[in-house]
């Protein structure tokens, strides 16, 4: 998309992603941030040729952060916001504390879900064919906001996934894989991975970080139904280098 050379990430994800009803999970770790994949998707969904809508639920950064990054990539979020193509829900300070008992905790996330559903309803009732994508940055902070109740978090996610069936929404979520490395916390990431169609993992290189290779991406595409009817999951692995205005993807050793 950015250059004539085929973008490896786009290729690995497949073209079906824009059609709706797909769930993409991005996983990263402390050493390598996977946030750039979210920015990539944001830019892609808000492409001027399409009329897709993005509902962005930000737990990690304020609007100004994303705005500045996307502006450098040639996508003005403020304008998209005005044109009702971009909905930004700032959840930086969302707290669902335990103070008022169990109910209150649920209320915070329930209210958030209500907001999302309302937005989806409004946009899907408008004319024209458009896909609504819900992006969450990042899931692990929902758990913190829910004060450690992973059940509430999972409930919230399942609620959101129901929108997929009803309105054909797509999902792109970011999560941190290394948090869930111990056995008793593994369940959560397994659940989100199970529900995903595409899993993108950002990892550092085993040899450490270098200035021209920032890490590697492993893309597992589960739902790639081929023309011949067979459904096969594909794994792709390539390196990336993040730049201000785009990201270079290349196979190991192919960069000169």
């Amino acid at each position: 998309m950015d250059n004539s050379r085929a973008n490896l990430l786009e290729e690995a994800i497949g073209i079906g992603i824009g059609k709706g009803g797909r769930v993409v999970v991005v996983e990263d770790c402390v050493e390598t941030s996977g946030a750039f994949v979210l920015h990539h998707f944001l830019k892609r969904f808000l492409h001027p040729d399409s009329s897709d809508v993005v509902i962005f639920i930000a737990f990690a950064h304020p609007f100004s952060h994303y705005e500045r990054i996307l502006r450098k990539m040639g996508c003005n979020l403020t304008v998209h916001r005005k044109n009702h193509r971009f909905v930004f829900l700032d959840m930086l300070t969302l707290e669902c504390p335990e103070r008022n008992g169990r109910e209150a905790r649920e209320d915070g996330l329930l209210a958030l879900y209500g907001e999302i559903e309302k937005a989806v309803e409004i946009y899907s009732s408008l004319e024209g064919s458009r896909t609504i994508t819900i992006m969450i940055d990042d899931i692990s902070l929902i758990e913190v906001a829910a004060n450690g109740s992973s059940n509430h978090m999972l409930d919230f996610l399942h609620y959101c996934y129901t929108l997929k069936a009803k309105y054909g929404c797509s999902f792109v979520t970011l999560n941190h894989e290394d948090i869930y490395s111990s056995a008793n916390t593994l369940q959560l990431i397994l659940q989100t991975e199970y529900l995903a169609d595409v899993i993108i993992k950002a990892e550092p290189l085993a040899t450490g970080l270098a200035s021209d290779v920032h890490g590697q991406l492993t893309v597992l595409n589960k739902g790639s139904v081929s023309e011949f009817g067979g459904s096969s999951s594909k794994v792709r692995n390539f390196h990336f280098r993040v730049k201000e205005n785009n990201v270079d993807y290349f196979y190991p050793g192919s960069q000169t």
């Binding site: 941030s33 946030a35 920015h39 952060h65 990054i69 970080l209 200035s211 920032h214 993040v242 730049k243």
Partner: peptide, 8 residues
Amino acid sequence: INTQVPAI
């Protein structure tokens, strides 16, 4: 902050 490029 305000950038996606990692600091190496």
